[in-house]
Design a protein around this nucleic acid. Structure first.
Lengths: 343, 343
DNA sequence: TTGAAAGCGGTACCAG
DNA sequence: CTGGTACCGCTTTCAA
């Protein structure tokens, strides 16, 4: 690690041309005579010159970077999310800054700080305060991922309530199940909040009384195991455990199986996301498929676009479709039953 | 999203002082009379001035950012990794850039590109070519995470071979198991390569013949299920499945249980990492605990330090300790048996 | 204490 | 086509 950075002026001097010409050559802009071009190219090659990103960014008044803000990451969901985001950012030559606000109190300030280093930010719903979001949107293009954007911030997500309502309806109507419990913390994120709402709505539509409270746990596999322990310990098992995501469901499945229960005979379990594991466990998990990767890619595209043209970027909310994926964990005989596709 | 950025000069004009004074006040450097200071502070407050990161970075010749490069992320391992890295970066006011090289061919170029935007980079072992690593180290401070740094690049990791050797030895010696298979792809990463080596070494130490080939799969739960399918389909189950990480082991466990096998009676399964789920499944997973979060934090610290003082940063390799965690999946009656602690 | 001015590394406009 | 030069926004000598 030794070389002191070579600059445009160095190259200009070495090639015996002006900095303007070097800039033109290294960017391929403007017209340069073949002869000079070659001289510059040689000098660049010889000294391994690479234009400094900061100088360039300062002059262009753009960072060439995108921000992605989420609560603690975990599991296949965030994996997909980041990959999807990168899939758009990388081709656009924008680097990706991440920030896990995970439990931190000063996350609002940190997101604001991030705003000064990137050209735009995608914020997962529920990770920062309403006011911080508003302030943020005043600094850079912002899009809310998996959550409501409110008045001035565009958002991209799915109709969780609708999806969960369809899934729950399947359990209630097709399988005639009655004693369902919902596992997940509605207060934790807009996603879960909407799923809980859909769970409730499905009951009401059929004139049934839903449970008054969900089982509040986090979104990871261990939490599903915990929920199962809690649920199957003292009282009689419910008819079905409707989980806020696949991870919880997988955990719950492991927990239930470990307790000797049979799924779906003794207990039905469903998830949300259609993570890769969902199809591979025994029994395969009935769940809702949502295009997470596409969601993130769309968010990146929106930001990139908005960063490109400062004009009002049509703050419309984008809603991608979901699909109920019926497998065996709900009691259906096989995976051939087609689930409906939501808006 | 409307305001055109306020600059130092603006504030200086508004407060009736020079830009130097504004800079001094906003950075708390140098001496400024209380009166002027207040005037500046007022102007800053009034207009919500925030010094531009680019200008500042250009002048300071440092980006205030760290890079983290890994192959596709997934599961608790990367979750821990990123959190650990951030835990050091955030307090140092450095933003975190990430890059998943995931299968991409041009990853070498992208990492090099990243080098021009950050003050230092942590690269996971096996994600970029040797030559790219060398080139990279010539541009910015680099540390290899979970892999060999080679001559000039410091590294931080654990002694995988030793750990896996101890775990395998436990299976071979204490439990008298003989027909073991290793699941994981040694060519995929230095970590797995070393674990495979440790697996082989343990056999040889006892004068036993290890299998000639591992079962090559990726590092995620679905891959574990696949491996179990493959392993339990045609032939007689082996005595034990030694997995390259907990995710694979969890997948294998699910697969084995789903096929009606009893663990550990019919089949022993072990993991590596001691992920949260390891202790929660039935039976709880015998595995190796490694301080992933601490590893990443240490890497960040190293880079931060090296970025601070350009002097030769003592490219020593840091090796953190591991611990064999004996639970029931290996056939031990309970978790009370203490595992050894490695260097 | 304070301010003028010289960069930091590039880009791009404007004359030639 | 090419070169001189004025910025981009901030920090930091160097004099006053």
């Amino acid at each position: 690690m030794g070389n002191s950075r070579i600059t445009v002026r160095e190259i200009a001097r070495l090639a015996g041309v002006s900095v303007a010409t070097v800039s033109r050559v290294s960017n391929g802009t403007g017209q340069v005579s073949p002869e000079l071009r070659q001289r510059v190219l040689d000098a660049i090659e010889l000294h391994g010159y690479q234009p400094d990103h900061l100088g360039r960014a300062l002059a262009a008044r753009r960072h060439g970077a995108l921000g992605l803000v989420f609560p603690g990451l975990s599991g296949p969901y965030f994996s997909e999310l980041i990959q999807g985001f990168e899939s758009e950012a990388v081709p656009a030559r924008a680097s990706v800054h991440i920030l896990c606000t995970h439990l931190r109190e000063d996350s609002d300030a940190q997101v604001l700080e991030m705003a000064r280093r990137v050209d735009g930010i995608a914020v997962m719903g529920g990770t920062i305060s309403e006011s911080a979001l508003r302030t943020l949107a005043d600094l850079v293009p912002v899009v809310v991922l998996a959550g409501p954007g409110g008045d001035a911030v565009p958002s991209v997500g799915v109709d969780n309530a609708d999806a969960m309502s369809r899934l729950t309806g399947h359990l209630l109507a097709e399988h005639g199940l009655r004693d369902l419990v919902f596992v997940g913390t509605p207060e934790g994120s807009p996603d879960v909040s909407q799923r809980w709402a859909g769970f409730l709505a499905a009951h009401r539509e059929l004139g049934l009384t839903p449970p008054t409270e969900p089982i509040r746990v986090s979104m990871q596999q261990p939490d599903g195991v915990l929920a199962a322990d809690q649920l199957l310990h003292d009282r009689q098992p419910p008819d079905a455990i409707v989980c806020a995501n696949d991870e919880i469901a997988l955990g719950a499945l492991v927990g239930a199986l470990g307790r000797g229960l049979r799924v779906p005979q003794d207990l039905v379990i469903t998830g949300f996301d259609d993570a890769p594991m969902a199809a591979l466990v025994s029994p395969p998990l009935t769940t809702v498929r949502q295009p997470v990767r596409e969601l993130a890619a769309e968010a990146a595209r929106l930001i990139l676009h908005a960063a490109g043209e400062p004009g009002a970027p049509a703050p419309e909310g984008i809603v991608l479709p979901t699909e109920v994926v019926v497998r065996r964990s709900c009691g259906c005989p096989t995976a051939t039953t087609p689930g409906g596709t939501g808006k």
